[in-house]
Design a protein around this nucleic acid. Structure first.
Length: 477
RNA sequence: CGGGAUGUGGCCUAGUGGCUAAGGCGCCUGCUUUGGGAGCAGGAGAUCGGAGGUUCAAAUCCUCUCAUCCCGACCA
């Protein structure tokens, strides 16, 4: 993993879109801001979905479904929530050919419908906790959409939990954050920053917002997942009370959290190179592509041999054989590299003669002959090397583009010219945050509690007052 | 909603006042090929985003309009 990442045009802000198009994961949809996810892209999403769903279930969550259409009055009930979401909602005004008495909002997120139901479901502390998740689409009418990163309609999972104490809800929000971190780092091979959001970046209606944040190859940051401690805000808005063990009535404590198809965008932008996508083995719908190589005279023999190989390997790996006679081997090599399949096996007459196959890694392009006797073991260890190698490569990139700053001028220059993650002390005020944004275009992605050795020593990069946090600034999507 | 740019077969592009709008990719037919995006031959496909104007003559100049993209504000 020694070679540097040199995408065709890291400075060209659209480079990843070209890769998406070329790799045939998505098309632009008929409505502005919408995309059509092609089968290849959807298979990737299904794989991510299946893995994360399993992790959430292991942590005790269950799946349910709530309505797409929300009475607009519901959205109004939580003051900050409506302020945050009203400008970006799509509203249904007619039904069955007649104007509706009350317009319906297409869910931008489901706190309001879900808490209207929780009111009916919760009476006693014995009803708690409720740990519910749903996999659905939502609509947010953003001013500036970008494929995968900010589409008008997107797919996500949203978790909504109800608890009998603040502590428990707090812990839940952090437990989910840890699940997201593990999922994104271990399955998607994307290293992330973990921490809290500043007030200005907080979810509308939350008390605290936690997030995982990743660095893309163009040195912009991307919020990859959020987990919110909602306090009693929604319980108060929807009047959801429970009787505690002492028989006293109390508002319910809440969390909500989600990750979306934006993760596909993150994966593309973190791992792709000039040849196209690179999908980490653990989330690749196809881990291995088998390409038979033959002439007319050897066709039958090679295809029969490959069909045996396919059968043998499919017992342990997600593998497809591309025996399409329309395309030449060279074409197939390029095509499957574009699609990011991590491992390619080529098999022709020479290999059959030697009881071996050629194995080519997508990450390094390294090609080697592997004997049939060791095939499974080699595939398995190589896939695992690729998985870890991709993570390590992305982590190195992140480290190489992270810097600590105490001098404001250098700090602004780094953010506006070089790009990357800038660590600095922050006094916690919205004004200083705004000042940085005006001077550099960067925002606070994550704040962290001060390290013991920094307390009393670290000053705010802007105001030079004693810092309250270490903040990580970056330009972001 | 501000600032900038671009609209030419399905995709990418050439043509910046003058003959029948050119090329590449892709597509169709046939032959030949298959270890890094094959070759040859033939073929289909464009009222040059739209409307109006200037001119003997407009893809090209002017006016209006529409659409898309980029940079901001908004944001999972």
């Amino acid at each position: 993993m020694s070679h540097a990442i040199t995408p065709r045009a890291v400075n060209y802000s659209q480079w990843y879109l070209d890769i998406v198009k070329e790799a045939r994961l998505a098309d632009y949809g008929p409505t502005k801001g919408s995309i059509v996810i092609r089968p290849g892209g959807y298979a990737l999403w299904e794989r991510l979905q299946a893995t994360l769903d399993r992790m959430l279930k292991e942590a005790g969550h269950v799946n349910a479904y709530f309505p797409l259409l929300i009475p607009s009055s519901y959205l109004q009930k939580e003051a900050e929530h409506v302020e945050g979401f009203a400008p970006e909602t799509a509203v249904v005004t007619h039904g069955g050919g007649a104007p509706l008495e009350e317009p319906l909002v297409i869910r931008p997120t489901s706190e309001t419908v879900i808490w209207s139901m929780y009111k009916k479901w919760i009476q006693s502390y014995r009803d708690l906790p409720i740990l519910i998740n749903q996999w659905v689409n939502v609509v947010r009418w953003e001013k500036r959409p970008r494929p995968f990163l900010r589409t008008t309609e997107f797919l996500w999972q949203e978790g909504h939990t109800a608890h009998s104490s603040a502590t428990e809800a707090q812990q839940e929000a952090q437990r989910i954050l840890e699940i997201y971190r593990r999922f994104v780092e271990e399955v998607m091979a994307i290293p992330v920053l973990v921490g809290q959001k500043s007030e200005s970046e907080r979810f509308a209606g939350a008390v605290k917002t936690y997030a995982i944040e990743a660095l893309m190859q163009d040195r912009k940051a991307l919020q990859a997942g959020t987990s919110h401690f909602l306090g009693q805000n929604f319980a108060k808005a929807f009047d959801v009370l429970f009787q505690n063990e002492q028989g006293k009535e109390e508002f319910v404590w809440a969390t909500s959290w989600g990750v979306s198809t934006r993760l596909i965008g993150a994966l593309i932008m973190v791992h792709s190179d000039d040849r196209g996508l690179i999908i980490p083995p653990r989330c690749a719908p196809t881990e291995i592509v088998l390409i038979p190589i033959y002439k007319d005279s050897t066709r039958t023999q090679v295809l029969a041999h490959c069909s045996q190989l396919q059968q043998r390997l499919s017992k342990r790996f997600r593998i497809v054989t591309d025996a399409d006679p329309q395309n030449s081997p060279g074409w197939k090599f390029a095509e499957w590299e574009l699609r990011g399949v991590p491992l390619r096996i080529e098999c022709g007459p020479k290999d059959i003669e030697n009881d071996s196959v050629m194995m080519v890694r997508r990450d390094s392009g390294k090609k080697e002959s592997v004997s049939l006797a060791d095939l499974e073991a080699t595939c398995s260890s190589t896939l695992s090397e690729i998985q870890h190698g991709l993570y390590q490569r992305a982590l190195d990139f992140q480290k190489n583009h992270s810097q600590h700053f105490t001098d404001y001028r250098n700090f602004i220059q780094f953010l506006s010219e070089e790009g990357g993650l800038a660590y600095a002390g922050w006094d916690g005020s919205a004004n200083t945050e705004l000042k940085v944004k005006e001077d550099s275009g960067a925002t606070i992605r994550i704040i962290k509690a001060l390290h013991n050795s920094d307390i009393g020593h670290l000053n705010c990069i802007v105001s030079n007052q004693p810092a309250k946090y270490t903040a990580i600034f970056a330009k972001s999507y």
